[in-house]
Design a protein around this nucleic acid. Structure first.
Lengths: 259, 259
DNA sequence: ATGCCTTTGTGAACGCGTGCACAAAGATGG
DNA sequence: CCATCTTTGTGCACGCGTTCACAAAGGCAT
């Protein structure tokens, strides 16, 4: 960055791109793609930042990790930048993906149009329910879990998506890892334990909603003066209390589908 | 992942609980709920941290923001902690939620069992497609977008979920906000612009996969020596180049459903 | 050429989040 | 009642990420 020009990531590529930056690259890529389709030749960091919903200084710094792809006084070449980011993210190659758990969510994912456009290809849909086997979802026949290992090996799949109930997530995860999967996108509301070298990213609707509720409550609490919740139930930190099943909660094992 | 918005120093309650901590509370709550069902009376920070997949010191510090709810030498009372966290997150009250866009994803969300258990109640399912109106999804009749404002007003809804295609997301968002919604969970792959005071959290499958691909590529790049991508297409930062539609990408407006 | 104007690239300061390490608090056993 | 052992609560330091602010770079007009 400082002196070194010729920023060609020839050797040990993409070494040291901050995680936070990596997480934003897809955002930039999306905005750039939109510009590209509108045949916009160049954009300034200011414009692009606005489109991506971030600070312009942050965007420039992010790009600086990739190299000097801008032109001072002008901005960035849209097409060129689209390619550079795509390459950096590894989207210039084909990524076969398997989706395990074809419930409501799994089906939604299978139908998701944003896959192919980004280099991701649904190699297989897998479910433990035998009655689903053979039935087409999004144009692809669902296969039984038994074939999981074979499918992964045959297609050289390295990315797996888990959309099963929480109860079977870890089990599925273990099989995926044993079969050679090294990246997992987990939609089940569970903490997955994986061996070193395997990446796991988690998407949890319930958590997102709870975070929103927190802020929502705070907003309400600002306007309204003071208001005590329901009944301050349980006991404060007392000694050992046997415990009772209590107002039977849910257990976080949604009968249908995690999200 | 999602993005927190609109920060507010808010002098009032919730003595400045760090955003990072708030994001982890649901995680702790889930682990605690599981323990509660197994009738475990107390847990140490070490055990709970392991169950939630975080560092024990971090967990203790998180809890310290809520107050001193633990007992030295013993640990935390599970039931009591469940209540405290629930209250802090605002889950002791009822949160009516509307889901807009009942495609594959919207239906999956409607069927999600983790809603009710956390104080969230699906007040209505809304879609712009007239042919869907009246049809039941997850036991709730889908209603037409026309009734959106009325529904929100009647039910006092403050949280909205957008599961529409990217193209109509902003429009839906505007109507939700105008109708009084102050928290939005957005599944559409678009940056929503909202007035101050409205929180937006985003869930984007495409982005998560791209981040996985990045790391996956890096892993592969470490083992394998050197390998050049396809053709270094476009031109480097040249002068003004008219531009051509190029290899028609996708445009990020998934025909079916965002995820 | 020369000077002006725009926009990048980045040094530096700042703030938040993380994790260590330990003293204080409390339980437990003698 | 005292000693010992366990586990919390937190002061502190460190590193990452964000943001500001500006010099350098390049285009463009004259």
């Amino acid at each position: 960055m400082a002196t070194g020009r010729n920023h060609r990531p020839a050797t040990s590529r993409s070494r040291g791109i901050p995680e936070a930056t990596v997480a934003r690259l897809p955002l930039y890529l999306r905005a750039l793609t939109a510009l590209s389709e509108r045949s916009v030749p160049t954009v300034s960091s200011e414009e692009l930042a606005a489109a991506a919903g971030v600070n312009s200084a942050k965007l420039r710094k992010d790009f600086s990790y990739l190299g000097s792809y801008g032109t001072r006084g002008v901005g960035y070449d849209v097409e060129y930048l689209v390619y550079q980011i795509s390459r950096e993210l590894g989207l210039t190659q084909d990524w076969p993906v398997v989706i395990v758990g074809i419930g409501n969510l799994g089906a939604a994912l299978a139908n998701y149009g944003g896959f192919a456009s980004r280099g991701f290809r649904v190699a297989a849909l897998i479910d433990a329910d035998p009655s689903l086997a053979g039935k087409p979802v999004a144009g692809i026949d669902v296969q039984h879990t038994d074939a999981l290992e074979q499918i992964i090996a045959d297609n050289g799949v390295s990315i797996g998506v888990i959309a099963t109930p929480a109860g079977s997530a870890q089990q599925v995860c273990d099989r995926l890892v044993a079969a050679g999967i090294t990246s997992i996108l987990n939609f089940a509301p569970t903490v997955l334990s994986v061996p070193e070298g395997v990446d796991v990213r988690k998407v949890d609707l319930s958590i997102e909603l709870q975070i929103l509720a927190f802020h929502e409550q705070r907003k309400a609490g600002e306007d309204a003066p003071e208001e005590e919740e329901t009944a301050p139930p349980a006991a404060p930190p007392a000694a050992a209390v046997t415990k009772r099943p209590g107002p039977g909660p849910d257990g976080d094992v949604p009968a249908v589908m995690p999200a």
